[in-house]
Nucleic acid binder design. Structure first.
Length: 669
DNA sequence: TCTCAACCTG
DNA sequence: CAGGTTGAGA
């Protein structure tokens, strides 16, 4: 996954753009935040006028379609997909709601308004109103907090001009509504209603014309053919900024395949438009008692919605290009790769895609989540090797505390009780072996037993581990009735009376968390204890494994462990003794064991594989004695006796030392 | 007869 | 490392 790509797309869709792109494509003005009425405080109608004056084309159908514009824009105002729904469209909707007076019957936009004013008188007045609009002074804009102060092209200025225009024209509405006063136009303070009505009509016409020109400017900027425009006009969207064809067309050109989500969005847009059309909020037939107000509303709303749509369409159409260029610049690839990247970028920001991107972001960033993360199963991470060479090394280890587990969350995955309980059991009740004072600095003390045992690798674990878990589960089942449901199903049970119990409890693996059973860390601890005692008594075992709930099985297992330790130990002794004899060693005094001895390395590798434990000198002495005993016996050919080792065992068993009290701690390893 | 440790095997 | 066997010792 390309983090930068995803990240970039998410950011560029709402924030900064390269300077040149901004200036050329007018994109900044389409940023969501720019629609915020409350944040964009000034406007400049003259900028719109400037923009419009630059319009080269003058469509012959302009006048004919003038009054289709508001209707179509009203209908298309609902086209904004959810991802781009913004305050601008909301404001439009507000206007629509305000207009939906009880007396207004729904109008079908297919029928042109009856009072379509196309006479020259209105044309003249329209020009006058245009001058008024053009003369609306613009003041320095208060920038939206957080937005860049970079130079932004006229696109933004045009947008702000539009916004200010809208704001100014909507203001009287609010005043009226808030004050409950009668109709009135704040600007001009004209006399009769008829005059005001007429003036507002003219103003509306003018604005519609201007918007039409703005449309044309839009089409012109993006090289939309006349046929495309006409097509749009022919389908009754002449006045609307709705233009799916270029929208899709540009997409297709850029990245061939139409994203299914995109198509869905388009469909929803169409549906929304149809619904709005059927709703028919806008109508010039509303010649009720409050016509001036109605016209005022219409003017305001038409301008708002139309320009909203223009900008939205701008944004929808152009942002992919912009993003594509930006991505290409970021990843520094050739243009031939742009299509591919664009496919990634152009995915509509549906809820799912947003989730996906967010997920990718967090995954790639390895964002770590706090302790409320309980999606345990997916968080298990391979454990580094443990301190001993046996199969326990293959267990997994959680490198983080649970509250720092790597973040791979699923939006849809609910927290399962068992998962929560699993974490609770694993990390809650027992600290386990966290620190051992006798251990030198740098010793790995970060692997509590309960954590070592994996959830997802049990089946792959070697036999020993499974067996340990069996014992563990068994002991737990005996001692923790409340946790009977926490059993390991796939581990062979050694004790028949508990096997059935385990088989009946699918969550037996959770027993791992309990220290009543023997864990890999217990094994590690036992091996370290072997440096002190080769023949530990049951009492010693119970004393030094206080966190183990002892029973017959556990005790036997521990005894067996030490038996195995001794076995290995004596095998090594005999092997090295014989080797020494083969090598021609004549004197037993030459048989010494030091930390540099190969024998010691072998033993240390077996009992202290991680070499994180300082082997006591006494063990070296005992090992040396043992080696000498074997040397002497072999030298004297006592090994011909089948029980020749028993004498050696009898000697060695007396050499046990006391295990340090530090081992009594349940978390010393 | 039972327990334990060594031994053997996997 | 564990399971099974064996033989010594109590």
């Amino acid at each position: 996954m390309n983090l930068s790509l995803s990240d970039q797309s998410m950011h560029t869709s709402s924030e900064g753009y390269p300077e040149e792109e901004k200036g050329e494509l007018l994109h900044p003005c389409f940023r969501r935040s720019m629609y915020d009425d409350s944040l964009t405080t000034y406007s400049n109608g003259s900028i719109i006028s400037q923009l419009l004056r630059k319009t080269i084309q003058s469509k012959r159908v302009l006048e004919d379609n003038l009054f289709y514009l508001p209707a179509t824009t009203v209908s298309s105002s609902t086209m904004a997909d959810s991802s781009q729904e913004d305050q601008s469209s909301n404001s439009s909707k507000e206007s629509m709601v305000e207009l939906a007076s009880p007396g207004s019957h729904p109008s079908v936009t297919a029928s042109p308004p009856a009072d379509r004013p196309l006479n020259e008188h209105h044309q003249a007045k329209r020009a006058r109103v245009e001058n008024i609009i053009r003369g609306m002074a613009g003041s320095p804009n208060a920038r939206v907090p957080g937005e860049g102060e970079r130079s932004e092209a006229d696109g933004r200025d045009a947008r702000e001009a539009y916004r200010e225009n809208k704001r100014k024209q909507r203001l009287p509405q609010h005043q009226e509504h808030s004050l409950g006063g009668g109709p009135g136009v704040s600007r001009g303070g004209s006399g009769s209603k008829e005059e005001e009505c007429q003036r507002l009509k003219e103003q509306l016409q003018t604005m519609q014309r201007l918007l039409r020109q703005l449309q044309e400017k839009f089409f012109q900027v993006y090289n939309l053919s006349d046929s495309e425009q006409e097509d749009r006009e022919e389908v009754g969207l002449a006045g609307s900024m709705e233009c799916e064809e270029p929208f899709q067309g540009s997409d297709s050109e850029l990245h061939g395949d139409q994203d299914s989500d995109f198509e869905k969005r388009t469909d929803s847009v169409k549906a929304g438009r149809r619904g709005a059309v059927n709703g028919g909020h806008f109508s010039f037939h509303k010649e009720g008692k409050n016509l001036p107000e109605t016209l005022k509303h219409e003017l305001s709303r038409a301008v708002s919605e139309s320009v909203d749509l223009v900008f939205k369409k701008f944004s929808s159409t152009l942002s992919p290009q912009l993003q594509m260029g930006q991505v290409a610049a970021h990843v520094n690839i050739g243009p031939e790769k742009k299509t591919q990247i664009l496919c990634v970028q152009e995915q509509p920001l549906t809820e799912e895609s947003m989730k996906t991107r967010a997920l990718e972001y967090y995954e790639s960033a390895e964002v770590q989540i706090p302790e409320d993360q309980t999606e345990a199963l997916s968080l298990v991470v391979r454990k580094p090797p443990l301190n001993h060479p046996n199969s326990v090394n293959q267990a997994v280890k959680r490198p983080y505390p649970v509250h720092q587990a790597p973040f791979q969350f699923s939006y849809s995955a609910p927290l399962h009780e068992n998962q929560i309980l699993e974490h609770l059991l694993k990390y809650g009740p027992h600290g386990n072996f966290g620190s051992l004072p006798c251990l030198p600095p740098g010793v790995d003390r970060s692997s509590p037993d309960s954590v070592d045992l994996p959830w997802d690798t049990l089946s792959a674990r070697p036999k020993v581990s499974s067996t340990q878990m069996v014992h563990h589960a068994r002991s737990t089942a005996l001692g923790q009735v409340a946790m009977d449901s926490l059993c390991l199903p796939h581990v062979k049970m050694e004790c028949g009376d508990l096997q059935s119990l385990a088989e009946r409890n699918p969550y037996m693996s959770l027993n791992i968390s309990f220290q009543e059973g023997l864990t890999p860390n217990h094994l590690k601890k036992a091996k370290l204890m072997f440096f002190y005692t080769r023949y530990p008594s049951s009492n010693v075992l119970k004393t030094f494994f206080p966190d183990v709930k002892f029973n017959r099985c556990i005790t036997s297992q521990l005894i067996k462990w030490f038996s195995n330790f001794r076995e290995f130990y004596y095998i090594q002794m005999e092997k090295f003794a014989r080797q020494a004899i083969v090598d021609g060693v004549n004197s037993v005094t030459d048989m010494s064991v030091t930390r540099d001895s190969e024998l010691f390395r072998a033993l240390n590798m077996h009992y202290n594989k991680a070499n994180d434990f300082q082997v006591p000198d006494r063990f070296l002495e005992v090992a040396e004695i043992t080696l000498q005993e074997f040397f002497n016996a072999i030298s004297m050919t006592k090994d011909t006796d089948p029980s020749w080792k028993k004498a050696i065992y009898k000697v060695i068993c007396k050499l046990d030392s006391d295990v340090p009290d530090e081992f009594k701690s349940s978390n010393c390893v």
